[in-house]
C-alpha cells in the first residue's frame, strides 16, 4: 500500500495525530517543551478552522485573530467582571464568535479575493481597537489577568496539564474537521473552491455554505484563543492584532492549504522556528522571513501536500 493511499484513509490521520500527541512527551526533557507543545496544539486548532475556510472554501481571512481575541477576552472578562466560571465563558465565547461571524460574514463574504481580504482585515483591526481602548473592561494595552480554569474542583495549572488539554482538544477538532470535509457540506465547499459559478449552477447555496464554514472557523479560533488566555494567565490585545492574523494565515499556507494535517505542521513550524532562531540574535527576524520565502518558493503547495507528492513520486 502506498503512503498516499494510507493518507487517504479517513481515520488513519486522526490516529496518527493522537499517537503524536501521546508519544511526543516521552521525548520532553522539561516543562518548557510541554509549553511549546501546548502552544503548537492551541495554534493548530485555530489553524484547522482557518484552513477549512481558506483551503476548502477558498476564502481568505486576514482578520481571524479577531476571533482569537474574542475567545481570549471571554474567559478573562467573564470570570473577572461577572464571576462566571471559566469553562462556561469558553463556550459563551465560542458562541459569541459564531454570532459575530454570522453578522459580519453575511455582508462581507459576498466580496471576492483581495476585497474579502481587506474586509476581514478591517474586522480584525476593529476587534483589536476595541480591546485596546475599552481599558475599563479589558485592562487596555497592558492586558488583563485571566483566572485559572477550574474543572470539577481541579485548578488547571502548569504546562503539562495544558499540553494534554490542548492536545486532546486538537485531536477532537481534527476529527471534526475531517468528518466535515466528507459531509455533503464539505463536498459542496470543495465545489465552491473549484468554481463558484459552477457550484451555483449545480444548485449549491453558495452564500449559505460559505457563511456556515466562516462561523465554524470562527468558533475554532475562539476556543484556541480561550485556551491561550487560560494557559498564559494574562492576555494582551496583541492576540487580536494584524500580525496575529498574518501568523495564522502563514501557518495555513506553510502547512498546506486544504490539508488538515498540514495545519498541525504549519503551526509547529512557526511556533518552534522562532525558538530555534534565537541563537542567531539580531539576524533572527531576517532569517525567519527568508525561511518563509524559501518554503513558499520550493514547497508552493505547502509542506504536507508537497512532501506527499514528492513521496508518491519516489515510490514510483
Amino acid at each position: 500500500m502506498s503512503l498516499r493511499a494510507l493518507l487517504e484513509i479517513r481515520l488513519l490521520p486522526a490516529i496518527l495525530v493522537a499517537a503524536i500527541v501521546i508519544i511526543l512527551p516521552l521525548f520532553f526533557p522539561s516543562a518548557y517543551y510541554y509549553r511549546i507543545g501546548a502552544l503548537v496544539f492551541i495554534f493548530a486548532l485555530a489553524v484547522v478552522g482557518l484552513n477549512l475556510l481558506m483551503g476548502f472554501a477558498g476564502q481568505v481571512s486576514l482578520g481571524h485573530a479577531g476571533f482569537l481575541g474574542i475567545g481570549a477576552y471571554s474567559v478573562a472578562i467573564g470570570p473577572v467582571h461577572f464571576g462566571a466560571p471559566s469553562w462556561l465563558c469558553l463556550f459563551v465565547g465560542a458562541i459569541l464568535s459564531g454570532a459575530v461571524a454570522f453578522a459580519v460574514g453575511r455582508p462581507i463574504l459576498k466580496l471576492k479575493g483581495h476585497y474579502l481580504a481587506v474586509a476581514t482585515l478591517g474586522f480584525g483591526l476593529l476587534v483589536a481597537i476595541v480591546l485596546t481602548n475599552e481599558a475599563g473592561w479589558t485592562g487596555g494595552p497592558d492586558g488583563m489577568n485571566v483566572p485559572a480554569l477550574t474543572l470539577f474542583g481541579w485548578r488547571v495549572h502548569g504546562s503539562d496539564a495544558w499540553y494534554w488539554i490542548a492536545g486532546a482538544t486538537f485531536v477532537g477538532g481534527f476529527l471534526l474537521a475531517l468528518n466535515l470535509m466528507e459531509s455533503p457540506t464539505g463536498r459542496a465547499l470543495q465545489a465552491i473552491h473549484d468554481s463558484e459559478i459552477a457550484a451555483r449552477v449545480l444548485g449549491i447555496d453558495v452564500a449559505r455554505k460559505k457563511l456556515t464554514i466562516f462561523i465554524i472557523s470562527a468558533m475554532y479560533a475562539s476556543v484556541a484563543g480561550s485556551f491561550l488566555a487560560l494557559f498564559n494567565g494574562l492576555i494582551t490585545p496583541d492576540v487580536a492584532g494584524f500580525l496575529g492574523s498574518i501568523e495564522l494565515v502563514a501557518m495555513v499556507v506553510l502547512g498546506g492549504m486544504g490539508s488538515i494535517f498540514g495545519s498541525l505542521v504549519g503551526a509547529a513550524v512557526l511556533v518552534v522556528l522562532p525558538q530555534v532562531l534565537t541563537i542567531f540574535h539580531e539576524y533572527e527576524q531576517a532569517l525567519l522571513g527568508l525561511i518563509v520565502m524559501v518554503f513558499m518558493i520550493f514547497l508552493r503547495q505547502g509542506i504536507v501536500p508537497s512532501v506527499t507528492v514528492a513521496l508518491a513520486g519516489w515510490r514510483k
Binding site: S30, A31, Y32, I36, L39, N232, T236, D238, V239, Q275
Partner: peptide, 15 residues
C-alpha cells in the same frame, strides 16, 4: 509580545 515573553521565561527557567 506577552505570549512570547512567557515562553522565553519558561525556557530561561527550565532549559
Amino acid at each position: 509580545n506577552a505570549n512570547n515573553a512567557r515562553t522565553f521565561a519558561t525556557r530561561l527557567v527550565e532549559e
